[in-house]
């Protein structure tokens, strides 16, 4: 539980953080809420030599109504996402999913940007923002660029972020009254999902994404395609794992995980269709 030695730098602004990360290169990591990175460091599975603490960059914690979408600062804590009245009104699926992250202590420390940038396929918010068709705003030495969620996740804990870039904002389209559901299946309440499903439906369009069904969060496009062609919920749900490449682990074999995805997608679509 004692990490390897590292240097600690605190950034006061996004610009400063990007300058610091550029200065120290590949061996540096951003520290936001620390709820993914610190456990890996304690086990010495991650050994960054420099931590750039962005926890005090205040202007990155917000939830704003930006017209057709909601803009969420990357350092907004899970608890603030969960409790946001703006999100409750316009993107209730995201607020609800945030309430399922870890336990209350984790939600008070962990940030939405940290969770997305960490790109853990077992985390709830990467898949949820993927289902919602979010866009991520990232900032590097040359300024800002936008990456669609569907283009962001590149592999296990790998994203389209360059080493000197920082996620600064998440833009989530308003749901406009769509039906939605978040299904999280686990053995203990505070655990990562064994399989999770974030889904919404609205007038023939839909979005379905899967938690922990591969090396990245998975957009279950085959399900939405089937629905758009008029398939029943049950028939569409049978395609739940078409786009997934699940792994087996202590809690679930590949077969079981595949089966769970189908059951949970069906349940999610049933709930979203009400």
């Amino acid at each position: 539980m004692i990490p390897a030695a590292f240097d600690y730098k605190r950034a006061g602004s996004a610009d400063e953080a990007i300058a610091l990360i550029g200065q120290y290169g590949d061996e540096a990591k951003f520290l936001a809420g620390g709820h993914s990175l610190i456990p890996l460091m304690k086990l010495r599975l991650a050994q960054p030599t420099v931590l750039v603490d962005i926890g005090r960059v205040k202007d990155l914690s917000y939830v704003k109504d930006a017209g057709d979408h909601i803009a969420i600062g990357a350092l907004t804590r899970h608890m603030d996402v969960e409790k946001s009245p703006v999100l409750a009104q316009h993107v209730p699926l995201l607020a609800h999913a945030a309430s399922h992250v870890g336990d209350a202590q984790v939600r008070h420390r962990g940030t939405i940007g940290g969770s997305i940038a960490h790109a853990d396929p077992a985390s709830d918010l990467p898949a949820t923002t993927l289902a919602l068709g979010a866009t991520y705003v990232v900032q590097g030495p040359k300024g800002k660029r936008e990456i669609a969620a569907k283009d962001f996740y590149k592999g296990f804990l790998e994203s389209a972020l360059a080493a000197d870039e920082m996620l600064v904002e998440i833009k989530v389209p308003k749901m406009n009254g769509a039906g939605w559901s978040f299904q999280k299946f686990n053995r203990r309440a505070q655990d990562w999902a064994i399989v999770g499903v974030a889904a919404w439906r609205n007038n023939g369009t839909s979005g379905v994404a899967l938690v922990n069904m591969g090396s990245t969060p998975v957009l279950a496009s085959a399900v939405s395609t089937a629905l758009s062609k008029g398939a029943s919920v049950a028939d569409a749900a049978a395609h739940a794992a078409d786009d997934a490449e699940p792994q087996g682990d202590l809690n679930a074999s590949v077969e079981y995980r595949t089966h769970l995805a189908k059951v949970l997608v069906r349940r999610a679509l049933e709930e979203a269709s009400k």
Binding site: D103, R187, R188, A189, Q190, D191, L250
Partner: peptide, 11 residues
């Protein structure tokens, strides 16, 4: 304790 599942209060 992530892999060895000791139930918590809410379980």
């Amino acid at each position: 304790l992530a892999e060895y599942l000791v139930p918590a209060a809410c379980d």
